[in-house]
Computed example of a mutant assay.
Amino acid sequence: MTKRMIKIQTADGTCRAGLFTPNGEAKAAVILYMDIFGLRPALDEMAGRLVAAGYAVLVPDLFYRFADKPEFDTKAFADDDKKAQLFGMMRETTQAKTIADTGAFLDALSAEGFSGPAGVTGYCMGGARALNAAGAYPDRIAAAASFHGGNLATDAEDSPHRRATDMKGRIYVGAAGVDGSFPPEQAGLLERTLREAEVDHVIENYVGMKHGWCVPDHSVFDAAGAERHWKRLIMLLDETLAA
């Protein structure tokens, strides 16, 4: 595996991103949308799992607009000031901004030789962004996954379920068994909306898993649950991008 840090020009500035590629030819490219804690070794490790499965992976810093931000880790929530800073950056990094940025991410992948159909996967705050990207770039994104993503079907105008009719790719949603940011009523609305829009999709409930269970440095990381998520994600990508 090779990792390079690249700079991607967007409408709002320059976004740094990790580009991870296999030693041989990649099956396709995947964008991995970070959780709230940002770029760090744990996400490199996750990108490595996808590279091992044959994919090139782009991991962009969605908080690039905050140039003076410190490095965070999953212990940041224990500090009230850091927690407030993280949630503030997440609020200001709107869905619309990430959707616009995704166009630049896809262009960057094309410039690196990955111009075909792509996949996206997101964790925590990245989950909704992955689904919104699928609706915003339906001719480019063939597979989108959300794991412990929150606010996937709400009253907000930028709620991902509102883009269901624009989606052409396959959608997978892995929900934590107990997650206040994606309660059963949201899951039901998302299921109904995707089905009515005739979107090929699966919404799966990971019983006993908590919000954040997939990410290896998270306090609620669950090894067995994480392996299950890898099986589901790689199968989704293989069936849509490598068939």
Rank of each mutant, 00 (worst) to 15 (best):
M1R: 00
R232Q: 07
T154R: 15
G225T: 00
N151R: 10
P216M: 05
F114E: 00
D155K: 12
G126F: 01
A108M: 01
A29I: 03
L43V: 09
A134M: 15
A11P: 03
S110T: 15
M235P: 01
D155I: 12
A42N: 06
R65E: 15
S110G: 15
R228C: 04
M167E: 13
W230S: 01
Q95G: 03
S115A: 14
E71K: 11
R140S: 08
T94V: 11
Q186F: 06
F72D: 13
D158V: 12
G169R: 14
A144E: 04
V215H: 08
N23W: 03
D12Q: 14
K75A: 15
G127I: 03
A153P: 06
A164I: 08
F87C: 07
R49M: 01
A226E: 06
L43F: 14
V51H: 00
Y206N: 13
L233P: 04
P183Q: 09
V178D: 14
G127F: 00
P41Y: 00
A134G: 14
N151Y: 11
G177V: 08
G113W: 13
G116D: 03
A118C: 14
D238C: 04
F63E: 04
K97S: 10
V199K: 03
R162L: 14
E185F: 12
F72C: 09
I6M: 09
V120I: 08
